[in-house]
């Protein structure tokens, strides 16, 4: 074999290996979805969505977990979104190159890499014990809000950065103050981008299990939350609870619970993608 032929074959080999690696990721995703749908699709029914958990697998449903997830994620959004956008505005529009901003920036980058279970320990020590919020919806939402905060800040900053400086200049040149410029011109333009980032951050947070288990969220909750002080469970915890049971029937419930969870995530991500496409200039 000549040198040139050998090089040609090596080139093909790398191309093939790259393609193979790419297909590996896609193939596993396909296998995962197939496995879950074949295990759980048969369990999906109106009863499954509207029943409380039960010791008998065939009667068990995800109503409590579904409502728990909605309660927690809504509260999480109410806590994390305003603070996150505020921090992003500060860093992007006011921060400049000061030392304080630099410290905050490095800090946020590091927070984004802290394992979620550590946020659970923070929530346990701070919200559940020190502030005595107990294992309530509000304690769970506060914990997840801290977890989501770095992601919310980073994506909002990106959206703000994409706003043309010419727009800010135009506003200043008319005698607008900094805040008037941000409020009337910058934020409306950045809003779709901010919202997209927000939804993606919240959908990631919605799939979190470990931090909520760590703060002591219950795994068996036969009632829907009736307020922010109520004990709760969420979809991923309910799935985890079912996965931990040895009986086959509960595993099917777990798969069905996963399908519901994935469907919720799909709706959120689809909405985010739609927002992005619609407002992309």
């Amino acid at each position: 074999m000549t040198r040139r032929q050998r090089n040609h074959w090596l080139d093909l080999a790398l191309h093939g290996a790259g393609l193979g690696a790419t297909l590996l990721g896609l193939g596993v995703l396909a296998a995962l979805l197939f496995d879950i749908f074949s295990d759980g699709f048969g369990r999906i029914s109106w009863d499954f969505l509207t029943s409380f958990p039960s010791r008998r697998a065939e009667n068990a449903g995800i109503y409590a977990a579904l409502l728990g997830t909605l309660w927690v994620i809504t509260l999480t959004a109410m806590l994390a979104v305003p603070v996150g956008i505020g921090a992003a505005i500060y860093l992007e529009e006011y921060g400049g190159r000061g030392r304080w901003s630099r410290i905050v920036e490095i800090n946020i980058a590091n927070l984004a890499g802290v394992p979620s279970v550590i946020y659970g320990l923070l929530g346990l020590g701070l919200f559940v014990r020190t502030l005595a919020l107990g294992r309530s919806v509000i304690a769970g939402a506060a914990t997840l809000a801290l977890l989501a905060l770095p992601v919310v800040i980073l994506s909002s900053r990106e959206a703000l950065r994409a706003v043309s400086p010419a727009l800010r200049e135009a506003s200043y040149a008319l005698g607008a103050t900094k805040w008037q410029t941000i409020w009337h011109q910058v934020l409306p333009v950045a809003l779709p981008g901010i919202l997209t980032g927000m939804i993606l951050a919240l959908s990631r947070t919605m799939g979190e299990t470990a931090p909520l288990i760590t703060i002591g969220a219950l795994t068996y909750v036969p009632f829907a939350p009736d307020g922010i002080w109520s004990p709760f469970t969420v979809l991923p915890i309910q799935v985890f609870n079912w996965v931990s049971r040895p009986q086959e029937a509960f595993l099917a419930n777990a798969a069905a619970g996963i399908i519901v969870l994935l469907a919720l995530l799909l709706v959120m991500n689809g909405f985010a993608a739609w927002l992005r496409d619609r407002y992309q200039h």
């Binding site: 135009a170 040149a173 011109q185 333009v189």
Partner: peptide, 11 residues
């Protein structure tokens, strides 16, 4: 007042 090189109307 000021008018810029590239027209920059608000959207």
């Amino acid at each position: 007042g000021m008018v810029f090189q590239k027209s920059n109307p608000f959207p």
